[in-house]
Design a protein around this nucleic acid. Structure first.
Lengths: 198, 198, 198, 198
DNA sequence: AATGAATGAGAGTTCATTCAT
DNA sequence: AATGAATGAACTCTCATTCAT
């Protein structure tokens, strides 16, 4: 009886809905995905969806919340490590690339559909996002203060520079392309660190 | 009689429609903008829109075509200039930042709504986009061959790194923020060039 | 342990449900009140409601049954009293005004939602209603036969005239208006009796 | 080609929709009538309805507006007539009964569905309603001042008394009952005038 | 006695597009 | 060149009710 497909089986209904929504939002965009499509992909009825989620938007918000939590945890772990700052920044910069590639669906949604959230939820997500951004910036500033990074560019801009390339991954990265996640991550972290050389 | 408002006056109807659509697509996204809103903003009726454009999607495509044409022209000019390659790359890299900031609406649309185009049109836009990308990459490769740029990172990845930050601009750049277009452009071009130091 | 709030406590569950339903039906109308709202207001779950009541409509019918029983009892008491007919009619006419004002919620429901009952239940309520109407009419006819009331108007119409104004109370009467229930009742009974003067 | 049925023909679409809505709202109530039913009865599609009316509620509001206008016009005509006040009040009181009976559908809707209007629209309708009420009250007060009507009851209450019976008509009046509109009107006006005798 | 997950039908509304004029 | 009435399909969301536990 225990199956692992999305359509039905033992996976809890909310989990199935979230998985189906994630895939469809990434493939087609939030607006182009109908609630009907989601419930069909999850093998339940509309009523079930609205039993667990208040609205279609809530579903989107849940996708975000999950990604944000995951990324923040990983960044915290790397930033708190016992190593020189250039090592910690490099690891964090590379890790966000790897996890982004490994969750390209979530990433696409994140960077393409955030503006579909209501002002209220948008604010909430932006706040959590900012926390993440600032943790990263703190690493850059730490290196700048200790002289291992150049101070030519404001730390803020450096962070935006790097995250721009991370967001961009979902546009060009293809799983069966010439470079694997680790290789891309190393290259992008490399570019960041090289740009920061004094 | 000659007025300059969008609502009516001497500006040709197709131009008015395009301007209204650009603004609305940028503000609300393609899917969330109704044809009704566009024609109201342009001060015409639906019939007029469908007289000049085959569909709502055509309107989006026209927005793209205009941006692409503009950017390609500017890139060609900078790349063909008579100057050292590091100068030409720097100028091109900075210019795309400035023109992106000066047309943030178009940029938002570009990076958020491309997937709303039909496969056919999407292909066409991607082809033109690739041409642009390759011209840029050629500059990087030229510098790598001549030894002024490091060969540590594949040129393709370098270009994606930079354009990631350009796309990202519409997410964080605010006209009344601390940095003007030119300053941001200098910083971002700087980061690129520094990352390419051998 | 003995609490008096609606939300929970010692009040029996069916009673709590009925009270919540009465208030909500009066405030929002029958159709606009969801079963979910009722059970939340009563502090129970849907299962409990459907344990005690067969359907949402049953709840409405119970509200009616309670009001009808109460009004019939009071009318019978006044009509059976040992007093001249003009006194008995006057007291009955005034009393129905007072009790209507004191239970404006029930009254609103009564006059606005009767048509929401199924034909079957509607018939039942109409039958009990008719019994009430006829008891009242009998008083008018008694007075007409004995010559204390004018026979210019058919007794039926007289009763409808008076009950029209009673139904109407829920439209205009406000508890903190200039007139109290007793004063309104006296005035309306007065108008009825004056209209019946030979 | 020129047919007069509701389903289609030369009657303008908005008129057809209004007529269908009026009938259905009266028969089933506002909440129990679906937009689908209305457009089917009018022989058009939903799109057509929303082309002319902003919402289902707008349709209801239009029904009200039409009735209010009609009634106000008639009351003004009777009140402004050149006749003794008791004659003018009598005529106005009887006329509102006749026109109510002749438009029982509108009347049912009016007195049963007003609370379905949004607070905003409700306010508007109440304001127009009050204007009507006050015109009527002015007649009563005029008679009270000149001594032809008793001052025992406040004029406000007298008006509510009469209109209660008018509203009530849609509850009990049946076209094929023993009394015609004119007869009922005479009786009810009679009761009012008799109640007002000094 | 009571839960609450799940159903499934139907609600009001929006919208890109067409077409007679 | 331009109108605007009308279409028809799709949209998100609500709800009374059922049933295994």
């Amino acid at each position: 009886m225990a199956r692992t497909t999305d359509g039905s089986g033992t996976t809890p209904v909310p989990r199935r809905l979230l998985a189906a929504a994630t895939r469809l939002f990434a493939e087609q965009g939030y607006d182009r995905t109908s609630v009907q499509e989601i419930v069909e992909a999850a093998g339940v009825t509309k009523g079930a969806l609205y039993h667990y989620f208040g609205s279609k938007e809530d579903l989107l918000h849940e996708v975000y919340a999950r990604v944000l939590r995951l990324q923040q945890e990983r960044l915290d772990a790397f930033a708190d490590a016992d190593a020189p700052v250039e090592r910690r920044l490099r690891d964090a910069a590379a890790d966000v690339v790897v996890t982004t590639i490994e969750n390209l669906d979530d990433a696409s949604i994140f960077f393409r559909s955030m503006h579909h959230l209501s002002p209220e939820k948008n604010k909430q997500v932006r706040a959590e996002r900012r926390r993440y951004h600032e943790r990263f910036r703190a690493l850059v500033e730490e290196g700048q203060r200790s002289g291992v990074f150049s101070t030519a560019t404001p730390a803020d801009l450096v962070v935006d520079y790097h995250f721009g390339s991370v967001h961009h991954l979902s546009t060009w990265y293809r799983p069966n392309g010439p470079l694997g996640p680790r290789e891309v991550a190393d290259h992008l972290a490399d570019l960041l660190l090289r740009a920061l050389r004094p």
